[in-house]
Structure formats: C-alpha cells, structure tokens
Design a binder for these strands. Structure first.
Lengths: 158, 158
DNA sequence: TGCATTTAGTTTACATGTCAGCTATCGACA
DNA sequence: TGTCGATAGCTGACATGTAAACTAAATGCA
C-alpha cells in the first residue's frame, strides 16, 4: 500500500496513476502551503500578501493591478481587497496613472521592502527544510515533470 | 529561461532548485484546482464539498466530523460550515452518536451518492485531460518524488 | 463628433480556510 | 461521588478566492 493511500486512509488503491499523481500534487501543496502560512503569519502576512510583495520587489517598479493578478493565477476582484489590506499596513502604495486614468499603479514602500528583506533568510531556510532532502537532480526532475504536466493547460480544449 | 520562469514573467532565474520545485508545485496545483473547480461548479459543488462526499463514499459508513477533517488536511472549524451546506443540499445527513454524545456522525444520503456517481466519468476524463499526456512511468515517478518530498513533514522540527 | 466596444478596477454575494475561544461530554482518578 | 483534564464540535472574526454586475475611462470607427 502506497504512502499517499496510507496518509488518506484510503481502503482501495487509486483508480489510475493519473488520479494518484493529481492527489499527490494537491496533498503536497496543501501541506507545504500550511508551513509557509505559519511562517508568514509570524510576520503579520498571509501567503498571498507575501506573494504580492515578492512580485513587486522582483519587478523593481510599480505595476498595475492586473499585472500582479496575472502572475498570481488570481482573479482580479480578489486583488482589490488584498491590496487594500497591504496598503492599510503601509507595505504598498497605490497611484492612479495620469495618462490612463483607469490604471492604478502599485508600488512597494520602504517598509514593505524592509519586511520582505527580513523574510529572505527564513523563507530560504524553509525551502531547504521542506525539500532540501531531495537531491538537486531529483528537484530538477520534479520541476520538469510538473512543467510537462502543465502543458495540458495550453490546449484550447484543455 | 525555464517554462515556469517565463510563466511568472520572472526576470531573474530562481534562487535555488528548491525554490523552483516549490513554486512549480504551487503553480501546478493552482491551475489544476481551478479546472476541477469549474467542473464541480457545473454540478453545484465546490472542490471541498466533492472531497467530503468522496471520502464518505470511499469509507462506505458514517464518519465523525474529525475523521473527515483529518483526511482533508483541514481544520475543524471549517468542517462545520462545509457540512452545513452539504446538509442543506440534502447530500449528507448528520446523526449524533448515542454512546458518545459529543460525536456527530456524517453519512452520505442517496441523493449524495447519486450525484457523486454522476461525477465519476467527468472526473476521470478531467484526470486524463490534465495529466494523461504523461506516461504511466512518468506519473509514477512524479508521485514518488512528491511522496519523498512530503517525508520532511514527519520530522519533529519539520 | 458620437456611439459601441473594450479595458481596468471596484462592489457585492457567497464558500473556504485560519485562529482563538466556547460548550458539552466523556473518562480518570481522588 | 465529584472534580479535573481531554475530546468533539461550534461560534465569531478575519483573509482569501470565485462569479456576476457595475463604473469609469479609453479606443475604434462610422
């Protein structure tokens, strides 16, 4: 009996290798997200909030809401509230674009950058704690398999 | 430049193979969850609701709330509302245990079983559409790598 | 110019998750 | 018997996600 089957107390084996792989992806993600959530909570952030800050720092310049939403696989409406809370915490600032007044630019504040920088070491440590026991070769294989899995999303019918 | 890096419009390469693998897991999970969400929505269900029904059918007997929560990696408080909505839809029934009056048994109703059975074929089709382009060997390798990744969760410090 | 279409964001309604704290009940043990 | 600690579940507060409908602004094109 496989490890996942045991974890889920499943009585019967999986219907297919496809089902087993998908359940493994979801299970692994849930558990790992949980760990990151606990780390970020200590710094007053949620996973999504950290994600927004990280995107802004990576870009190094203000970004429109939609650009941020795209990189997070998230629907736009959710961004509004997310940004509201980050703004209230003083971690980001919003400025309406003068050329196209529909656009709202979001930028990292000094406080936001500072908080993010504080998180770099703990985040990296957590990365290693969670998957550092896999060899670099295994990590690369895992990444390649997941990227191949996502190819199905590009298909029109997909 | 890797596929994930391109998807995320990331300018710089990943800090580590650990980070890349973790982001790949999260990204893949998000996109796939989305697809399942759309399928279940057509049947008036959410991912979590389907998960509960599936667990109950797999077990074939009533289960206490906590047992269900455990298998879903979910915290108890969330279960209450989830079960409320499933009960309101007539898909499950709750009975308080007579021996231990703290325990509430949850069981699948006939309507719940029927709805679930209707979903079997579409769900299996979606499984194949999402990851059916990987060979059985690749799917097994992916599952084994994810299971190995989760081993870190068992460690006391983990 | 003038209107239809598109685009960027927001609002609203609802289902999830997370935590902290509460109630009811059970079991053990003095 | 009576009380204390553990267990099962619920409530309330808050942050996320999803969809649908809406506002405001820009664009295309007659």
């Amino acid at each position: 009996m496989g490890r996942l089957q045991h974890e889920l107390k499943k009585k019967r084996p999986f219907d297919s290798p496809e089902q087993e792989a998908l359940l493994n992806i979801m299970r692994t993600n849930d558990r790992f997200q949980n760990r990151f959530g606990k780390l970020f909570r200590d710094f007053g952030l949620t996973n999504s909030q950290y994600n927004v800050l990280r995107i802004l720092r990576g870009e190094g310049r203000p970004l429109p809401c939609l650009e941020i939403a795209e990189r997070m696989v998230q629907v736009v409406p959710a961004m509004t509230g997310l940004l509201d809370r980050l703004e209230k915490q003083g971690l980001i600032a919003r400025n309406r674009c003068t050329e196209d007044r529909r656009v709202v630019y979001v930028e990292l504040t000094v406080a936001g950058k500072k908080l993010l920088d504080q998180l770099d070491v703990p985040v990296d440590e957590l990365h290693r704690r969670l998957v550092g026991h896999l060899t670099p070769e295994e990590l690369r294989r895992l990444s390649r398999l997941l990227e191949k899995a996502r190819l199905s999303l590009d298909e029109p019918a997909g």
